[in-house]
Nucleic acid binder design. Structure first.
Lengths: 201, 201
DNA sequence: ACTTTACGAAACGAGCCCGTTGCGTATCGG
DNA sequence: CCGATACGCAACGGGCTCGTTTCGTAAAGT
């Protein structure tokens, strides 16, 4: 070898700018948050927004979908802390987190993409599900399983079905209701009604 | 007046072709059903699909949104017949109708538009809600009200909340689950669990 | 016949975005 | 200093869609 090996095989020349990389990913999320669908999203617009040449983008991602996938991957999805005191309390915390997400327009748009472009961009949807949906869903599953174990819930409860039943109503509200219907007490009302059932006692 | 008035003020010249009009609206729905978002939808593509000149389209609609609105208006949304024997039975029928809709890809795409482009095209969403969502929702409200009246359901039930709780889980399944999860018994399972509640008896 | 309007087809200039290339500059290792 | 690579910027040719216009033809009333 003529070059001094440093072990990590550092290539010669100017290293890629991490700042540019971050700017590109942020610009992508910005534009998505402003309502761009994946198809309308243009490399030129991303470059302009990021203050970056198109070259810099094409050097890193060969196509738009890969870029969007990486951008979505940077979305933190902190699962809210659950006290574990009661199933009811934990479910309300999870629902409240969904409600607050829905009130942020950028989050709404990301959700839009996840719901509407899932057919056309399956990779993208898969990534989104893994980083954004699945952690929260798993958290809810654990809450429900704990409830089954300690007798708060029915012993033969279908956990996956229950997850959909708890989450579904909030999704309905976030998508098809006016924002003013997303009142503060909505999580509590949903959880209480779902736990109690609609039938007469 | 030099012209013989016929009362209905029929304009002179060749009348517009109803066949062309129908072809345009059908082509629009076709393309939407194939996955086009409203933004990707092009007048040229619609004209080509309909076997029609662009002129014929522009003569009738001044912009794309108006055209799509009219196209959605042609969608029949037959609310399924409800026997009225029991709340449970009627709800299952309504859920089954949603399930069957979700299995048709063209219906899925229409739903996609309704959910994801509602922010960008409020008129469009409003129309869709009026012709597709509201009739079914109202049907469900009636079922629930009847259930409250005859004692099947809780006397102080919040009807609108209950509608979301019943519908939500099916929406979750239609959007975020594999098609094979849309099993035949899903409507029954959802309705029974929702009526009974998750809590221990 | 004659007017009037609609029809399908084709072409227009304009604008946007594509993916690529060349340019001069900046930043790294050696 | 030198070679190598990345940077931002501008420009390229090509493609697509826009909304409009022109053309010759078709279908109605008078």
């Amino acid at each position: 070898m003529s070059t001094t090996e440093t072990g990590t095989a550092r290539p010669a020349g100017r290293p890629r700018s991490e700042k540019a990389e971050k700017a590109i990913l942020e610009a992508t999320l910005d534009l998505i948050g402003e309502g761009s669908g994946v198809t309308e999203l243009t490399i030129e617009a991303i470059a302009a927004r990021a203050g970056v040449g198109k070259t810099t983008i094409y050097r890193r991602w060969s196509n738009k979908e890969d870029l969007v996938v990486d951008a979505l991957a940077t979305l933190k999805s902190p699962v809210p802390h659950l006290s574990g005191e009661s199933v009811r309390g934990d479910l309300i915390v999870l629902m409240e987190a969904m409600r607050l997400d829905a009130l942020q327009s950028d989050r709404r748009c990301v959700m839009n993409i996840a719901m509407s472009e899932s057919d056309r961009y399956p990779h993208l949807f898969e990534k989104f599900r893994r980083i954004a949906i699945e952690p929260r869903r798993e958290a809810m599953r654990q809450v429900l399983r704990r409830g089954v174990a300690n007798g708060e819930l029915q012993p033969d409860l279908d956990i996956d079905l229950a997850v959909q039943i708890v989450s579904g109503p909030m999704v309905m509200f976030t998508r098809w209701a006016d924002p003013e219907d997303l009142t503060e007490d909505l999580p509590r009302r949903i959880v209480d009604q779902v736990l109690a059932g609609l039938g007469r006692k």
